[in-house]
């Protein structure tokens, strides 16, 4: 009766998920930090994981990015060669290579994601050098391009990020991650430590880069406004479980679960 088959414009490539989580669980002793989380993420899709601290969203992010071994379940990722691999079967060298090339990770605290004593140019160029770029001029040119894209004055290319403002540091961290054109970027409260005005600029930048580069993003945030602005889909977590998931505006405008209703009703009106 209802035909859902032919109604898809996306290419075959986009029809395969990039990352699949299956019944992911993590316990620390008797504490279950994360319970039975499953979802599929497609290329170009932005998924927000929301919930308050202690809800398990950071644990989940660590498992998804292969930094923490799950107690149960699997994460599989479709590599650049098209082969889908279970993250636990990747060797450390492969995992770290993935992290330097096809993945990005934007930390809340830029000091964790940057080399604070090394110039901005080298911070951006490091990933390129790590994958074998060996031409100073080209590395510098690419770094300059990226600084421009994240709205950092190229004249600051030789300055160390410790001389940068918080917003600039965060933009630099994004450039450092995107320079190898990853397909998936993890973000952990990327606007967490920033002033509201700086946040708006960063979100706007991230939003346009995500669309331009067709990035898939998994973003952990407790800020529903960030989720609304950036994400297509949202997962609400509480007590280690995903309690509600769906299209972002649907979950935020028509929340079904008591906890989601509480979260939504707690935001000040814009």
């Amino acid at each position: 009766m209802v035909d859902q088959g032919s109604a898809n414009l996306d290419t075959l490539e986009n029809d395969q998920p990039l990352l699949v989580a299956q019944s992911l669980s993590k316990s620390f002793g008797r504490i279950a930090a994360c319970r039975d989380v499953s979802f599929a993420l497609y290329p170009g899709e932005v998924l927000a994981i929301v919930g308050e601290s202690g809800s398990g969203k950071s644990t989940l992010l660590q498992m998804l990015s292969g930094q923490l071994a799950p107690s149960g379940g699997h994460v599989s990722y479709r590599m650049r060669d098209g082969v889908t691999r279970d993250l636990t079967t990747l060797g450390e060298a492969e995992r770290r290579f993935l992290f330097r090339t096809d993945w990005g990770f934007v930390h809340q605290d830029p000091a964790q994601g940057l080399r604070m004593a090394v110039s901005a140019g080298a911070n951006v160029g490091e990933r390129l050098m790590a994958v074998g770029w060996n031409h100073y001029g080209r590395i510098r040119e690419t770094a300059s391009d990226w600084l421009t894209r994240v709205e950092i004055d190229v004249a600051r290319i030789d300055d160390a990020p410790r001389t940068y403002s918080g917003g600039m540091r965060q933009r630099l961290q994004i450039a450092r991650n995107l320079v190898t054109e990853p397909r998936l970027v993890f973000m952990d409260e990327p606007t967490g430590g920033l002033d509201v005005s700086v946040q708006a600029r960063l979100l706007d930048l991230v939003r346009s880069l995500v669309a331009e580069l067709h990035l898939a993003v998994i973003i952990v945030t407790h800020d529903l406004a960030v989720a609304r602005l950036l994400s297509h889909r949202v997962m609400v977590m509480k007590g280690g479980r995903v309690i509600e998931t769906g299209l972002t505006d649907q979950v935020l405008d028509d929340p079904r679960e008591p906890y989601t209703q509480l979260l939504v009703s707690s935001i000040l009106p814009p």
Binding site: V2, D3, S6, A7
Partner: peptide
């Protein structure tokens, strides 16, 4: 049912996946 004619086929939006809703 919320039937929507999308690219020549009738899709039930009430049962569609988020990705499909975004496409629509």
């Amino acid at each position: 049912r919320i039937g929507i004619r999308h690219r020549g086929a009738l899709v039930d939006l009430a049962a569609a996946e988020p990705r499909q809703i975004l496409n629509i």
